[in-house]
Amino acid sequence: MDDVTTGEPLIVLDSVNKWFGPLHVLDDVSLSVGRGEVVVVIGPSGSGKSTLCRTINRLEPINSGTITFDGQALPAEGKPLAKLRSEVGMVFQSFNLFAHKTILENVTLGPVKVRREKPAAARERGLALLDRVGIANQAGKFPAQLSGGQQQRAAIARALAMQPKAMLFDEPTSALDPEMVGEVLDVMTSLARDGMTMVVVTHEMGFARHAANRVIFMADGKLVEDAAPTEFFANPRSERAKDFLSKILTH
């Protein structure tokens, strides 16, 4: 895939360290993600890839290093942080749709309460987004009434409703039944084609191959490899990555 990066990078992590007690979960991680770039983060469980993803909108605070989003250092707390979060969409492994709100209310909540958009306008745009992810006919239902794949697509629509500058995906298909993985990956692939900046933590190697600009391989809190997908899958440089790929690609 061509290098789509233009201008200054959108997300920059510089020497980021984080500990959970004695566990060094992010070990001197530096990474930059350009505008429109799709970066897939893979690695064994416990490698810190989810934590890395969650530090970018500060759901996980870091112990040292700096994270810059769109030219600005991440704010520590309060209103500036809330504003930054509203510009970074996040999709979780367990969907986390608001259980007491309908699908449409889930999608319009942010625009109405954070952006102060008019409810009617937010509703119209929300319905268009639900249509885009293929679940417009589920708008009036509650999350528990939807399948996992539908819930995750609704969660993507909820994040998109904020018109984010970048989207973070934290293992978006790991909690799904196998037959529902495809419908979610399809939505993500179309987002990638439309030029959305994406950081995707996933075990879906197919998605990494065909939609990513870069693959990041993490192990033991360290960023071990950073390469184009074709290069990474054909010639992993590190022993750790070779070992990982041999385990997941032999089946």
């Binding site: 759901l59 809330a82 509203s86 996040m90 986390n96 954070v114 994040a159």
Partner: peptide
């Protein structure tokens, strides 16, 4: 977390 992630205070 989801609420904070969309920018709610």
């Amino acid at each position: 977390e989801a609420a904070r992630a969309i920018g709610l205070s």
